[in-house]
Amino acid sequence: MAELILHHYELSTFSEKIRVAFGLKKLAWRSVDTPPAPPRPLLMPLTGGYRRIPVLQVGADIYCDTNIILPALQRLHPEPTFYPAGSEGVARGLSFAWERAIWIPTIGVISHFIGDMFPAEFIRDRKEGYLGIDISKAAMAPSLPQHLQHVHAQYAWLKAALADNRPFIFGHAPSALDLTCYQTTFLMRKNCPPEVDQLAGLAPLAGWYDRVAKLGHGTPQPMSAEEAFAVAKAASPTPPTHLQANGDPTGLRAGQKVTVTPDDNARVPVSGTLVAADATEIVIHRHDAEAGDLHIHFPRLGFEVVAA
């Protein structure tokens, strides 16, 4: 089996979700340190222009977005599962809802504490190329009360779910939903002073947070971007046998030219030829002049697929 290669950077909260996923499954993986903002000259050809982080690479198969990376890891390494006690549907649905609801409010809380430390080029990239909003402290400060309302409301149901002292959301075993809720908590607790626990109401979750953190990051080994690119160039994409070639419920057919675009932010379309799809995943083929043939995988939730 090809090595698991994660393109990520240390302070990326969505990357932390996948790093802890490796820990839950006790996996060995290769770690490619990636700049927080483009240009990423050796990664962009692999993704067709998709600019968000993290990206999982398995040979010449490229997985974009954590909500397709986790199912891919589950398929490749089924045990221990991300979905204990038949929780897959709830875990996947609530993970998507959690991230959509809490992402900008979480940034608002972080900006309150450290927004004046963000480099100017980082702020400019997030405004012009990624989020479409100014995340500087001065710009975010007026909305802090509203951001805190969203954070407290969202964390209220998580605290209620854990109120009976269960170790994890679904009971005794950690799940994909624990990883999702942990990663935004990690973003606040990693980057803010201890006062954030009081401001954002995180203190009652400290025990749960520590249990998820103790899952660790598996066994990473560093890899350069050049080495990862060479792996893709030398490999051939794996046929997606877990999907039907013409299983798309909206009628898209294998062989069609399509574009796939995030529907919320970083809306860079990725073009290719449809390989296979269903209601949860789409795989497109791209040929890069240097990297060769690639399969790029996206989740359906959060992405728009349009026939060219």
Score class of each variant (00 low, 15 high):
118 F>Q: 02
122 F>L: 13
174 P>R: 05
134 D>L: 01
128 E>P: 05
60 A>Q: 05
130 Y>H: 13
114 I>F: 04
238 T>A: 14
114 I>T: 12
17 K>V: 05
57 Q>K: 04
9 Y>S: 08
25 K>S: 11
236 S>Y: 00
119 P>L: 08
66 T>R: 06
237 P>A: 10
289 A>T: 11
173 A>F: 07
271 S>A: 14
238 T>I: 12
197 D>G: 14
251 G>P: 12
36 P>M: 09
22 F>Q: 09
168 F>H: 13
148 L>G: 04
262 P>I: 07
308 A>G: 13
257 K>A: 15
201 G>V: 08
42 L>A: 14
268 V>L: 03
191 N>R: 15
32 V>D: 08
179 L>G: 11
6 L>R: 09
157 W>M: 02
61 D>P: 04
166 R>Y: 08
269 P>G: 01
200 A>W: 01
5 I>L: 00
32 V>I: 08
45 P>G: 12
74 Q>A: 15
30 R>P: 00
54 P>H: 04
253 R>Y: 01
293 D>K: 02
20 V>I: 15
71 P>F: 04
206 A>W: 02
283 V>Y: 11
158 L>P: 02
121 E>D: 15
123 I>D: 05
149 Q>Y: 01
111 S>W: 11
118 F>T: 01
151 V>A: 07
3 E>K: 12
174 P>N: 06
297 H>E: 05
64 C>D: 10
62 I>S: 02
28 A>R: 14
240 P>H: 09
114 I>D: 03
210 D>M: 02
51 R>E: 13
53 I>W: 03
23 G>M: 11
116 D>H: 12
270 V>Y: 03
162 L>F: 08
4 L>V: 00
230 A>K: 12
219 T>I: 08
246 N>Q: 02
245 A>L: 12
290 E>R: 09
34 T>E: 15
29 W>V: 06
241 T>G: 13
62 I>Y: 02
60 A>I: 03
297 H>L: 09
18 I>R: 09
113 F>Q: 11
193 P>M: 11
214 K>Y: 01
201 G>N: 03
245 A>W: 02
10 E>F: 11
161 A>M: 13
308 A>M: 05
63 Y>D: 02
264 D>W: 09
298 F>Q: 08
220 P>Q: 08
256 Q>W: 10
68 I>L: 08
35 P>I: 11
46 L>C: 06
265 N>K: 14
185 T>Y: 10
111 S>P: 12
151 V>G: 04
226 E>L: 09
165 N>L: 04
246 N>K: 00
202 L>H: 05
10 E>G: 08
218 G>C: 10
6 L>P: 06
104 I>D: 01
40 R>E: 11
252 L>P: 10
39 P>A: 05
243 L>Q: 10
161 A>K: 15
20 V>A: 13
174 P>W: 05
193 P>Y: 09
129 G>Q: 15
111 S>V: 03
139 A>N: 02
209 Y>D: 10
